[in-house]
Design a protein around this nucleic acid. Structure first.
Lengths: 202, 202
DNA sequence: CAATCAATCTTGACAGTGTCAAAATTGATT
DNA sequence: AATCAATTTTGACACTGTCAAGATTGATTG
């Protein structure tokens, strides 16, 4: 666990690298992030970052991990703030927030759930853990919502969780990746998706 | 239109490049495709490909375009072969086939609908055209299915088309990108998605 | 048939990239 | 004060995309 280890010669280089990297990808995408450029930005030599991240991959994993924490915070805020909402509306609120997060942090989102990290099969242990936990929370919520009648009961909750999350994710990606481009549509499509997902009360 | 233009000195270099490139990305991903390696594979100098594709981007677009043709063929085969199927089951068949295509040609699929091409905002004119047409066909079908009662009528067909396709796409991506990894689940999740999408007949 | 032209291909070059190995620096520990 | 180990730097290597300039050559024209 080198997480909180302070560098000896400079300030907290690891932190500096992380925040600088986040800025770099925020404007310019992941392609705009090179170890060398990053090192230059922070004011160290090209290979200095390698003493805090084994790889470029590990750096990306760390950024993604931050993204999960951030997303968790935002999402958690909903359930604590809007305690009076009925379950179905809370669900919609969640979905909209999730998509908004993906939209506003498209590059981070891409790292969190994108092939750059996952396809190569080299996600960090801690990244694996936090993302797994993230899905577990989703699954648990879906399970509760199903018993509350928000979702149909003709499928196991795991399947509903998987397919509903895939629906969310697909929407995020289509906008994030520039396939769907009309940003004005995103909310309406999202609401449509939600209404398709939840049980018809008619 | 330089599409069918034959090279002067060698065989049909453009075609050779395309097929070699497709092979390269098929095993090893897009990252495994470099212009230089490609040129080497075909037996020309590093910069020879630049007389047939302005860019690496244009090469990728061409591969993606091929993918669309391929997908179109596969999908079209369904509706001509299974004419006896009821609409809802035909839809399921389509979805499963779509996902299977994405799965078996994951790298091509990634090019077709991925940020590499679209996010940078530099899809070829012809690529834009064919993908747009692809969605148009989807929308038209959804419209028909809605009048046939397969989908609910409480949303405009455009929204249903967008959100249902996003659901499909999300599923494809999660498996393609290695986020969902258990390949055995894909069919079941897909079926769940279909059943959620279509109108309940109970 | 010979000269010209333009498409095609090659060679050379430049600025990037990730990352390894070895040497240099330096704060903390003995 | 000397030692040690963590940190940083310098040098190097093999890649990458792509541009500019020259060489080759099939087709076109006079």
């Amino acid at each position: 666990m080198t997480e909180t280890k302070k560098p000896y010669h400079h300030g907290d280089l690891r932190e500096k690298l992380l925040s600088a990297a986040t800025i770099l990808i925020a404007d310019g995408g992941v392609d705009n992030l090179s170890i060398r450029k990053l090192a230059d930005k922070v004011g160290v030599s090209r290979t200095a970052p390698y003493h805090h991240f084994k790889d470029k991959n590990e750096l990306l994993c760390a950024i993604a991990e931050q993204g999960f924490y951030q997303q968790d915070q935002i999402v958690r805020a909903i359930s604590t703030q809007k305690t009076d909402l009925p379950a179905a509306e809370l669900f919609e609120e969640y979905v909209l927030t999730y998509i908004r997060f993906a939209n506003e942090n498209s590059e981070t989102y891409d790292l969190m759930y994108g092939r750059d990290i996952w396809k190569a099969g080299r996600p960090t242990k801690s990244l694996k853990a936090i993302s797994k936990n993230c899905f577990k929370l989703w699954l648990e919520w879906i399970t509760v919502l199903q018993t509350e009648g928000v979702f149909e009961s003709n499928h196991p909750p795991l399947r509903i969780a998987q397919s509903s999350w895939a629906a969310l994710h697909g929407l995020c990606r289509l906008f994030n990746d520039g396939v769907y481009i009309n940003q004005d549509d995103v909310d309406e499509i999202a609401k449509t998706t939600v209404e398709i997902l939840i049980k018809k009360t008619s």
